[in-house]
Nucleic acid binder design. Structure first.
Lengths: 155, 155
DNA sequence: TGACACTCGGTGTGATAACACCTATATTCA
DNA sequence: TGAATATAGGTGTTATCACACCGAGTGTCA
């Protein structure tokens, strides 16, 4: 049986409300899931944020994306997109090029090396997700997704 | 109607699996919920991590907690507990005292000022949770909590 | 009792994130 | 047209995180 959050965090008192309990459960679960992914990505020299960027850019091929559009599509808030992309450019994962039509814009695209890295990560990541969430049936996963979608409406 | 994650992140392609979709939904929701809380706490000069520490310490009164126990109870991983507590001590929110029996241990306790701050935050935080999660019925919240608890078993 | 391993908190250092501000380009509209 | 405004990306600086390592204190057991 899974430990409840109360047991997990060794709390004495119950939660003050169901809403608070749900809130804390979402944060705790996210943290645990992210930590596992970070562990998997670390040997590849990639953070989960960079992994997220690569997948977004792969989905935007062959057009590429400008910085702000990319930032808005991130899973988590990332105010300093410029230097995150600087580092990824240095690592050879992305390229940037200033547009001719609107010279304010800089399009970022995933490189061949970036795509190869994603390809290499495909199987282990799927495997991780299976390990993490394999206990939930398709119906339960669907239900979880729907409840979280509803939760995001308010925040 | 709430936007699905696919719409929210303006993705073209569907997710490769339900497990991946659930994974991404948890992370996205956590990020949004945390951002709102950070916005609420910022005027009080508190990060959500510090807020978490204060609540743990309040629940541990009057004994206090040692650094490692505190770290293990955090919602999110926090490797550098020492300097987080340094900052909170400087802010007058916690005190630390080395134990006499086992001189390796340093007990951390919440101060009166820390408790007062938590007290002040009580109502706005409850209000925030209502705003964030008020769309979900008690039954839905219970269901969400159970599904997340099950999800954490694998990670 | 004394060498050893273990646990505790702390520290040095580099990487990353966060915030405010800046410059260049484009757009709007009198 | 040209001043005002908006938008794009970039930069300077500080705070925070993260990792590896350290010394002090404790327990163990020959």
């Amino acid at each position: 049986m899974s430990p409840t959050l109360k047991e997990d965090l060794r709390q004495r008192k119950a939660f003050t409300s169901l809403q608070q309990e749900a809130f804390l459960n979402v944060l705790r679960t996210s943290s645990r899931l992210t930590d596992s992914l970070e562990d998997l990505l670390r040997p590849y020299g990639l953070s989960s944020t960079q992994f997220n960027v690569l997948r977004i850019l792969r989905g935007s091929e062959p057009d590429g994306l400008c910085r702000n559009e990319l930032r808005d599509r991130m899973l988590t808030r990332m105010p300093d997109m410029t230097r995150l992309l600087d580092r990824m450019e240095d690592a050879g994962l992305v390229t940037r090029s200033r547009e001719q039509e609107d010279r304010r814009m800089v399009l970022t695209r995933i490189t061949v090396a970036g795509q190869a890295l994603l390809q290499e990560l495909e199987r282990p990541v799927v495997e991780l997700h299976r390990k993490q969430l394999g206990r939930l049936s398709d119906e339960q996963l669907r239900s979880l997704i729907d409840l979280l979608t509803l939760a995001r409406e308010g925040a």
